[in-house]
Design a binder for these strands. Sequence first.
DNA 1: AAAAAATATTTGTATATACAAATAAAACCC
DNA 2: GGGTTTTATTTGTATATACAAATATTTTTT
Lengths: 142, 142
Amino acid sequence: MKTSESKYCSCIYFSANALARKIEKLAIESWKKANLSPSHAYLLMLVIEDAGIQPGALASQMQLTPSTITRLIEKMEKKKLVVRIMEGKVTNVYPTPKAKVMLPILKECVNHFFEAYSKIVGKDESLHLVQNMNKLADKLTL
Amino acid sequence: MKTSESKYCSCIYFSANALARKIEKLAIESWKKANLSPSHAYLLMLVIEDAGIQPGALASQMQLTPSTITRLIEKMEKKKLVVRIMEGKVTNVYPTPKAKVMLPILKECVNHFFEAYSKIVGKDESLHLVQNMNKLADKLTL
DNA sequence: AAAAAATATTTGTATATACAAATAAAACCC
DNA sequence: GGGTTTTATTTGTATATACAAATATTTTTT
């Protein structure tokens, strides 16, 4: 059944979740080359781009809770892609050399994902939709 | 930080997930009166509306996997809101009297949610967005 | 400077969701 | 009608995420 044929297709809760799950699937596919899940990959890129970034800033950028960020970092540490250095109450997160070497692959995955979904969706249309989704998400910042 | 200010706000993966999480939060709030999570509530309404509906049909309506549906049903069974009757390879899911009595409260929650988010978002705007999200989700049915 | 408040992060626990494999029944085919 | 394939569901296991409480440090106040 198509999303638009479901009984609840007019409910934004349902639609937003269904869409997010489908996009996530596509993203997972695109990030397989780097052997990372999309959220791990985005976190890693933020860390590479801004070495020493703190969990709070990562949470803010990724719109996830600090505890979720801690969990993501733990996994990336196990994979030897980031290290944490605690200084007083703050924690600094750094990419390892192994992570830095991966950067080109990471960028390839970004591109792959963008191409995959703009092929299916259309560039203009998706750009427009993303803007609208952001606008709405901004309004929902309670 | 606003969603639209994040470094990844132009990535549909990021936007769709951020939006879905925010809407989910609002929905959780609206469904507290019924002491149910949004997905449990929607499943229950489908079961009340169509007594005997099968997990496969629920999965299709809710755009979730059959295994997720099984898990949701298990919880609802523990709460004595549905019962499963297996007949051969199919399973029929029925609402209990306790569930049927809840119907008015469930509808109240639906209304509460609609009002809560259309107050924040605006009716026309959200309607439009929902349609676009569905259209996109349909295209992503791989 | 000691006490109180604020801040940053982690930890314990819980939820929703999915994939892959297992199970079981039904339908098909020769 | 017996073997094979398909279909429906469940189960085992894993992931992402969050909330609330705990911890630890810094800042503010008095």
